[in-house]
Write a protein that binds this DNA or RNA. Structure first.
Length: 854
RNA sequence: GCCUCUGUGGUGGAAUGGUAGACGCGGCGGAUUCAAAAUCCGCUUCCGCAAGGAGUGCCGGUUCGAGUCCGGCCAGAGGCACCA
């Protein structure tokens, strides 16, 4: 009597069995012996309190890799923890009066329970949350070591201020002029902040990212662009007339186009340039101009319009190469204080911004780069700057040189004159990581009126967050706490104050991977790192992944970490999102998938029967109400089915659309697999037969095992799953033939092992049903027998003039001449070559025959 | 504007330069059933009765052979963006 597989009964039973044997606890290096190590890590979650489908997909992928590696004999580290600091906890405190810590730990408990139901092969003994005092205390120690090494410093600067979240944001956290979390338009404020000197590693971060072969090309380019290296010249323009006080030396500019110096027609300063700030004190006109520039702000719209504003300062500077020539000095809104020196020279003929500026304000335009095959007399620049290749002209000693050569010569001339130097500039800025929030890692600094900023003593760590804070007042609760900030100066003992800023939560996630590796034994850090396979969303391509790479270098420089090339993540995979169709009622309200159904081919609201418009397929989000709750899916279909469907439908790097029918298909498949095992008699089974049918089935099995193995290695989980489907279909068919029991039993034993990474619970049930030894989660990957994955006879396609006309079956090692003859003898081929002149025949052994006729 | 990626049936997607459309979803047909559900089996790129022809966003090239390589376009997605 056929039985059905019941995931609700089976899944908890197997999870208990894994827990009892502590199956996924990593071995120590000594226990592991010769086994290679594999550190498989998925980006750890923020404990929002609820799992979503994106989590299921992310962690299902990681689990496939971890379980596969384990089966292949690796000592696997596959940990889980919580990125637990952050604003949502404070928002909950404000809205509902709950303590952020209690709220967070309750969420962690809820999510851990959900995670456990997924059957992930995690080593829970290494679990921690970033809000654990142990963790953030260690982080404070790191901060102090960085400070000592000069990698952390404090300075006053203009910062991005989020008026809704009441905190500073890093440049990386400002998206289109808005806060990445709040969406509020970001303001500029002058504040004293702690900075991480990420620019110290700019060059290394750029060089090494190019070498990360197991990272997606996309992420590598994104990081390279973000770092933004420019090589050029930094030089000084001397004033032609009397220099303003304090600027006797002249004006420094940075340029990547020293070859176009002869085409310079003006120098432009940023409205925030110190010289402009100084002059504005005595000039109402300049003051007004600065205000006007500041107004435009950084909003998307403002930059889109990009109207060029300018004001002539009346100052002039001397041209470095042309005796007696002078250039006017302007203030221009398009010159940014934060990049280079905050001043440029403008060469309108060969820079689009400069030409727009020059045309608007009537400045001269001198072309100095002549495009190839162009008559100098014919060459004009109107409103479009010429930025292509060519030869230098109108340029004295640079005439006739190619652009690159001219750059070198110009730089050499400026250097010889002592007026400047070849220089490299980066777009990357230091990371301001102070945040004016409560729920974060306290910065271990004490301010003393006499001693200044004093590091908290190492033995006073962790500097703990106070409990019983009030969220009544806006602003930083630590600032408002009655006693917490009052401490004595560690140096002089006088009354002093704690730093009330906390660290950006991106600091917490910049080194957690190292904590997992060393939480049991500090000596294991070197054994486990780097992470062999890191998996997460592409939205972290710049922020988290860049910070982590920089942190790994900083940790190396303070003796905390020793990594080849400084890289923490040897392999990176960025998975796509989970999407779902959206539904809208006639009055424009979003409807949940559960509230609608299809009747007679049209979508209607289940409750009312009112028509529903099925809309775009978008990322699951609460606002569009197109989310599907993993708990419900797990309760209905089981964790295996949810995992399977997440991986089956799309390549892992692409988005996958969640569909009801797809999940049902996955559920059907699970039953089908069960039926294969269920239809076998009880073990023991005979050895596979030697007959042709048995051999055929064995070939299918051994080839499938190999194909699945390879596809998992290559992160082609959807292809691995397709191979499993084919295999199962073949096994289903084999049920109808007699005498295949041995081959079928062998196949199902192999299938159980190949299925384990994807559907671990079902695989255990199948394994148990066929009398497998121990747990299949602990079993080795089935090795394909070489003799069974090669064929004696092969099928070759036969083409005439590149078009397929038939196929032949021949012995594998048949000679080319014989193959050719067999191909030509095919009736369907003969029809196409009869009476024609066969010019040549290409025989690709094992592949194809192509007969070329006139 | 610059950079990166992606374009294949009704649909998600397979194809080391070698039989395009594996596998899933959907659809159609059949078996089983009193009937249904479940399950099982088959068919399913387009045109054509067929022989055959066409076909991987568009145009061209390399090759015996191109979805795949090269050049030029078009469209969509993502990233960066007044970065000198």
């Amino acid at each position: 009597m056929a039985t059905r597989y019941d995931p609700q009964a089976a899944e908890p039973r197997w999870r208990d069995a894994w827990a009892e044997t502590d199956l996924f606890r990593t071995k120590t290096p000594a226990e592991a012996g010769d086994a290679p190590k594999a550190y498989v890590l998925e980006m750890f979650p923020y404990p929002s309190g609820r799992l979503h489908m994106g989590h299921v997909r992310n962690y299902a992928m990681g689990d496939v890799v971890a379980r596969h590696r384990r089966a292949k004999g690796y000592n696997v580290l596959h940990p889980m923890g919580w990125d637990a600091f952050g604003l949502p906890a404070e928002n909950a405190a404000m809205e509902r009066g709950i303590d952020p810590g209690k709220w967070t730990y309750a969420n962690i408990d809820a999510m851990r329970a959900q995670f456990r139901k997924l059957g992930l092969s995690l080593d829970w003994s290494r679990e921690f949350a970033t809000c654990d005092p142990d963790y953030y205390g260690a982080q404070q120690a790191l901060f102090l070591k960085f400070l000592e090494k000069g990698l952390v410093y404090r300075k006053a600067s203009k910062v991005n201020w989020d008026p809704v979240d009441n905190t500073v944001l890093a440049n990386e956290q400002v998206i289109d002029g808005r806060g990445w979390r709040s969406g509020a338009v970001v303001e500029q404020r002058e504040l004293t902040q702690w900075f991480f000197r990420i620019t110290a590693y700019a060059d290394d971060l750029l060089t090494e990212v190019q070498k990360l072969e197991r990272w997606p090309e996309k992420v590598r380019t994104m990081q390279a662009n973000w770092i933004g290296k420019s090589e050029g010249l930094q030089m000084t323009f001397h004033f032609a007339g009397p220099a303003p006080a304090g600027f006797e030396a002249g004006i420094d500019v940075f340029t990547t186009r020293p070859d176009t110096l002869f085409g310079a027609s003006f120098v432009a300063l940023s409205p925030d340039h110190p010289l402009v700030v100084q002059m504005a004190e005595k000039s109402e006109e300049l003051k007004a101009f600065r205000a006007k520039c500041a107004q435009i702000g950084t909003s998307e719209e403002a930059i889109e319009k990009a109207e060029k504003l300018g004001l002539d300062t009346g100052l002039t500077v001397a041209h470095p190469f042309i005796e007696g020539a002078t250039l006017p000095v302007w203030v221009a809104n398009f010159v940014l204080m934060g990049y280079g020196t905050g001043a440029i020279f403008g060469c309108p003929a060969h820079d689009q911004r400069d030409i727009e500026f020059a045309r608007k304000f009537g400045l001269s335009v001198t072309p100095v780069v002549l495009p190839p095959d162009t008559d100098p007399a014919e060459f004009r620049v109107d409103d479009k700057a010429y930025t292509g290749p060519g030869r230098i002209f109108n340029s004295g000693f640079l005439d006739g040189l190619a652009i690159d050569e001219a750059k070198r010569v110009a730089i050499a001339r400026i250097e010889a004159a002592g007026q400047g130097k070849g220089a490299i500039n980066y777009r990357l800025r230091d990371w301001g990581f102070s945040r004016q929030r409560y729920w974060g890692c306290p910065i271990p600094i004490i301010y003393c009126d006499d001693c200044g900023a004093v590091p908290a003593p190492m033995d006073s760590l962790p500097v703990r967050l106070p409990e019983n804070v009030s969220f009544e007042k806006p602003g930083n609760p630590l600032e408002h706490h009655p006693t917490w900030k009052n401490v004595d100066c560690p140096k002089c003992g006088k009354a002093a104050r704690r730093e009330t800023d906390t660290l950006d939560t991106f600091v917490d996630s910049s080194w957690y991977y190292a904590r997992f590796a060393s939480i049991r034994d500090p000596a294991e850090r070197a054994y486990w790192l780097p992470v062999d396979q890191y998996i997460g969303g592409v939205e972290h391509a710049v922020l988290h992944l860049l910070y982590s790479r920089a942190f790994a270098r900083a940790m190396r420089d303070v003796g905390e970490l020793d990594l080849p090339a400084g890289e923490p993540f040897a392999g990176l995979f960025t998975q796509g999102m989970v999407t779902h169709e959206t539904y809208k009622s006639a009055d424009g309200k979003w409807l949940e998938p559960d509230a609608v159904e299809k009747r007679d081919g049209a979508w209607v609201e289940t409750a009312t029967g009112a028509p529903v418009e099925a809309g775009a397929i978008e990322k699951m989000s609460k606002s569009k109400k197109n989310t599907v709750d993993p708990d419900g899916i797990v309760a209905t279909y089981g964790a295996d089915v949810a995992r399977w469907f997440m991986l089956s439908d799309s390549p892992p790097e692409r988005d996958v659309e969640w569909t009801q029918s797809g999940v049902e298909g996955a559920g059907r498949f699970a039953q089908r697999v069960w039926s294969l095992a269920d239809s076998l008699s009880d073990a023991p089974y005979p050895a596979p037969g030697e007959d042709a049918a048995s051999l055929d089935l064995r070939r299918v099995s051994h080839r499938a095992a190999k194909a699945i193995d390879k596809a998992i290695e290559d992160f082609r989980f959807n292809s691995a799953i397709a191979s499993i489907y084919e295999w199962v279909n073949a096994l289903k068919k084999a049920e109808q033939s007699d005498g295949l029991l041995g081959a079928r039993a062998e196949a199902i034993s192999m299938l159980a092992r190949c299925l384990t990474p994807f559907m671990p619970h079902l695989a255990e049930s199948v394994w148990e049903r066929i009398g497998g030894k121990g747990l299949v989660s602990a079993a080795a990957w089935p090795e394909a027998e070489a003799a069974l994955i090669t064929d004696d006879t092969i099928t070759l396609a036969v083409q005439v003039n590149g078009k397929r006309r038939g196929e032949i079956s021949v012995a594998k090692d048949l000679g080319n001449d014989a193959v050719e003859a067999a191909a030509k003898a095919l009736p369907e081929v003969e029809a196409f070559i009869a009476g024609k002149d066969v010019k040549k025949t290409i025989v690709v052994p094992g592949r194809i025959v192509n007969i070329v006729v006139a």
